[in-house]
Design a protein around this nucleic acid. Structure first.
Length: 422
RNA sequence: GGGGAGGUUCCAGAGCGGUCAAAUGGGACGGACUGUAAAUCCGUUGGCUCAGCCUUCGCAGGUUCGAAUCCUGCCCUCCCCA
């Protein structure tokens, strides 16, 4: 049986390691407590966070103890990186609210049961995941104490030679940004002290910050903490993982429906399928390789496995089957399809009175504006019940309903919406 | 604190008194071809009561028949000097 570390390596999660031998050994000999930091400025984590989440999940399956650290304290600091400068400052209530939601999302992947927060460090909770908020120590932090205890261990010269900061020296670096590294290092130290956490994971871009924590632990505690970073996952088309036209693919089913989540995976590039199966499913690697080796049209099977598995992990088996049925019915025959296709309701009276196609498409969110839908129709990209809409003044009425009182709208090749009278 | 440059539509980036809803590129979207893939080709890309009208070029005023383009003030960003 291979160790958790080997699993991570085999599945492509490992890019850089502080001390590979020591890490491998630790995963063999002991229950390792590992952590990853998550940012709670949003209401939901998204597919881009999934690499990290799955890493924790694999580690937990290997019998180790994952900690999801949310930056409730760091989130109070405004983001200095330009673009989001205008975003309203989040209140502590908002952040706490987000943290609650994030925990719920994470619990699809990690088993938090039994491990009460704050007590996870005690005996008897081996293998339980915990969620920790760095606000617990950051919000009450005393500046002078902090400088005296932590500040003395950081060399500005050294920090400035780091790749990440060297680049920022060109464009400007604020004191805030400069402090992120120190705070993140401090988080690691605190987790080491309170929870016996000796390992941190993160994306390759986090390497500098993570290593700073490893150093701090060595200096303060004379202990050897370790770190593993994951390669930044880029897709074959060069895009960042988890972004689509509509924006991020969220893990929260309210924000991205299981159907859309499923569709995201089924639409990935052929070339990425094997890697994604390794990262985002728990399927044995033999199977992953088999599926990845499929060629030509057959690779679609691999994609459907990928989509089903990932959706199952995130939203449960039932939601996954439903998304799969929906996809089949709609891409199979383009008939009104089963219940499982995304559906909107409309008052029967309105349909009886007759409703313009354009309006209905907008209402079904198949277009952001009427102009957009008109364009869609002019370009031949809209259809009702499988039939192309020829004119923008086409009226729809009850005659367009099938026996079950349903009609099917389609925008472009892939976007469907079932309209039901209510 | 002093000096300089600049803030344009999703992004990058032209425009510098009317011919500007605003070049070009990227992205995105639609069509053709396919396998709900990639590549390629073609088209579209502010809104609407759509051959017309309305709202956009950091914000607020002003000049003008007319401003993204000129003037004034403010906000913000970047660079150089202190």
């Amino acid at each position: 049986m291979s160790s958790a570390f080997e699993v991570l390596k085999e599945r492509g999660f490992v890019s850089q390691v502080t001390n590979e031998e020591a890490v491998a050994q630790a995963f063999e000999d002991e229950i390792v407590t590992c952590y990853i930091g998550f940012d709670p400025t949003g209401q939901s984590l998204h597919v881009g966070n999934l690499v990290q989440i799955m890493m924790l999940a694999h580690v937990q399956r290997g019998g180790h103890r994952p900690i999801a650290l949310v930056g409730g304290g760091t989130a109070m600091i405004p983001d200095p990186s330009g673009k989001d400068a205008l975003r309203p400052q989040l209140s502590t209530e908002d952040i706490d609210q987000n943290i609650l939601r994030i925990k719920k999302q994470l619990s699809s992947y990690l088993d938090f049961d039994g491990g009460h927060e704050g007590q996870a460090g005690r005996a008897g909770n081996e293998g339980r995941a915990s969620m920790v908020n760095n606000a617990d120590w950051l919000r009450t932090l005393n500046y002078i104490t902090f400088l005296r205890e932590i500040g003395e261990h950081f060399s500005v010269n050294r920090m400035l030679t780091a790749e990440a900061y060297r680049l920022r020296m060109e464009t400007g670096l604020t004191f805030l940004e400069f402090n992120y590294q120190i705070l993140q290092a401090y988080d690691f130290l605190m987790l080491f002290r309170e929870y016996g956490c000796t390992m941190q994971f993160g994306g390759d871009d986090q390497w500098g910050n993570i290593v700073a924590g490893v150093d701090l632990i060595r200096r303060k505690e004379r202990a050897a903490a370790q770190a593993i970073t994951t390669p930044l996952l880029t897709l074959s088309d060069g895009k960042k993982m988890g972004k689509t036209a509509e924006g991020a693919v969220w893990l929260d089913p309210e924000m991205t429906s299981p159907y859309d989540f499923y569709q995201f995976w089924i639409n990935v590039d052929d070339r990425d399928v094997e890697g994604l199966l390794g990262h985002f499913t728990f399927l044995p690697m033999e199977q992953v390789r088999e599926l990845g080796a499929l060629e030509g049209e057959k690779i679609r099977h691999a994609k459907s496995v990928l989509a089903f598995e990932t959706t199952k992990i995130t939203h449960g088996e039932e939601a996954a089957s439903q998304a799969e049925r929906g996809a089949r019915s709609v891409f199979g025959g383009a008939q009104a399809g089963a219940e499982d296709v995304p559906t909107v309701e409309i008052d029967r009276e309105r349909l009886e009175a007759g409703i313009n196609v354009v309006d209905l498409f907008v209402e079904a969110e198949l277009g952001k504006s009427k102009s957009e839908v008109r364009r869609l129709i002019e370009q031949g990209g809209a259809s009702v019940n499988g039939e192309r809409v020829a004119a923008i003044d086409r009226m729809l009425g009850t005659v367009d309903l099938d026996d079950e009182g349903v009609l099917l709208l389609r925008a472009g090749k892939k976007r469907f919406q079932r309209v039901k009278t209510g």
